[in-house]
């Protein structure tokens, strides 16, 4: 196979309230802070936020696409939810910007560091993805 580049992106993905509802149904996480502004405010948030796991799932696409779609090469994925992703009640939603770079090339696994931001602010931090090293194939 051709050598993998050592940088990823920038890639941009859009998160909307509608997508967040689809994710609530698909994941089974019906926490009301993801669909009720009132309930979100009760918890001290300005309004509805998306699921951290949804942001996490969307951001990983930058890595699986970089791997040519072979998601089975993802070994581990670890992060901190640094800031909530606030969702305006409109059709446009918000853009998630993902960039990454390979920070370690071990014999069996490579480590990718991702930066995931919304409106210039990091929303995920300490994002580390381990993938099977290419020469293992």
């Amino acid at each position: 196979m051709t050598a993998l580049p050592l940088t990823i992106g920038p890639e941009t993905y859009t998160i909307t309230r509608f997508g967040t509802l689809l994710y609530a149904a698909a994941s089974g996480d019906w926490n009301p802070i993801h669909w009720s502004d009132r309930q979100a405010r009760n918890l001290g948030l300005p309004g509805v936020i998306t699921h951290g796991l949804y942001t996490m799932g969307i951001a990983l696409r930058a890595v699986t696409d970089w791997l040519g779609g072979d998601a089975s090469r993802v070994v581990s994925y670890k992060l901190r939810f640094a800031r909530p992703v606030l969702l305006p009640d409109d059709d446009d939603g918000v853009d998630l910007r993902v960039i990454g770079k390979v920070v370690a090339q071990g014999e069996t696994t490579w480590t990718v560091r991702l930066e995931v931001a919304c409106a210039g602010q990091p929303v995920l931090s300490r994002v580390s993805v381990e993938v099977k090293a290419p020469d293992q194939d």
């Binding site: 926490n31 009301p32 802070i33 309930q39 918890l43 581990s76 994925y77 670890k78």
Partner: peptide, 13 residues
């Protein structure tokens, strides 16, 4: 559930 915030996550496959 409504009082829970998700802070960190790690998956190992």
């Amino acid at each position: 559930l409504k009082r829970i915030i998700h802070a960190d996550q790690e998956f190992t496959w």
